[in-house]
């Protein structure tokens, strides 16, 4: 499967977008994330892999403070976005989430029209002054999400009437409509068939030109195909974080090697 690597893109990916230092997450008494330090680069796809329950989704949700909605969840440590602490008291999670968009495991379009789904984010953030600008954003987002051709004639049809793969691309279009700087994806392909998965993977690689993308995945082939950097989580610890090639060909930690060869997980 590794020979299916996507076309190489020349992207300057040296700037550090998100810096996490000494991050601890607790669910009530459970210590879910332990001492995670990670640097997520701009214009790069970073994959989080690891067995179920290892904390990769939890950590992902820390990056746009979606964990705030869970009462018993506490986050300690430091997560900086462009050098600013996102857990600072002055930060409103609403503003943060406009900068750090998210795509979820199950496609979850609003039960509204395709147009309204994409237009919702720009509308609530006041990104447009008139209908024409909004139309433009909707079209641009749907084009970037590789969905425009399929839905341009039925923008007023309900978003929930699309197929699973189309719904997920609609959710991606919705997430990029607010022009975020980071796009978090929590197993975006786990509910999709192989064809839809291939389309979404292609899309993720294209998104890299504009955004920093962080993707949680259970599929190691997917991580190998779409990401440049890979982080391996195990039991709440960040075991290894390196270039994707390095992780899959020459892991330094024995636990990483066991996982990618299928012995733990």
């Amino acid at each position: 499967m590794n020979d299916m690597t996507l076309t190489e893109r020349a992207v300057n990916a040296t700037d550090c977008k998100i810096t996490a230092r000494n991050v601890q997450v607790y669910y009530g008494e459970t210590h879910a994330i332990k001492d995670v330090d990670v640097d997520i680069l701009d214009k790069t796809v970073t994959a989080f892999i690891g067995p179920s329950g290892c904390g990769k989704s939890t950590f992902l949700r820390c990056l746009n403070r979606m964990n705030d909605t869970i009462d018993i969840c506490r986050v300690k440590g430091e997560i900086l976005l462009d050098g600013e602490d996102i857990y600072d008291k002055r930060v409103d999670p609403v503003q943060l989430r406009a900068k750090v968009g998210m795509v979820f495991q199950k496609p979850n379009p609003f039960p509204k029209s395709i147009y309204d789904n994409v237009a919702y984010g720009p509308k609530i953030h006041g990104l447009t002054r008139n209908r024409a600008e909004l139309d433009e954003i909707v079209e641009a987002s749907l084009r970037k999400a590789a969905l425009w051709g399929e839905v341009k004639d039925r923008l007023q049809a309900p978003g929930t009437g699309l197929s699973g793969g189309q719904q997920q691309r609609l959710c991606i279009a919705r997430a990029i409509a607010t022009s975020p700087e980071v796009l978090l994806m929590d197993e975006p392909c786990s509910a999709l068939d192989p064809i839809a998965t291939a389309q979404v993977e292609e899309l993720i690689d294209e998104l890299r030109t504009n955004f920093s993308v962080v993707i949680v995945t259970h599929s190691m082939q997917q991580a190998a195909r779409v990401s440049q950097k890979t982080a391996f989580f195990h039991l709440g610890n960040l075991v290894e974080y390196d270039e994707t090639d390095q992780i899959f060909t020459n892991p330094t930690d024995p636990r990483t090697e066991s996982y990618i060869t299928g012995r733990i997980g």
């Binding site: 609403v94 989430r97 968009g101 379009p109 039960p111 609530i124 953030h125 409509a177």
Partner: peptide, 27 residues
């Protein structure tokens, strides 16, 4: 109302109240 709708709204940067009044309440 499925929690995924709330997540979706919060994910695009809606405030808690916007997510409730725009999405949860109509459903």
């Amino acid at each position: 109302v499925p929690p995924s709708i709330r997540d979706a709204a919060l994910g695009v940067g809606a405030s808690k109240m916007q997510s409730v009044f725009h999405h949860v309440l109509p459903l």
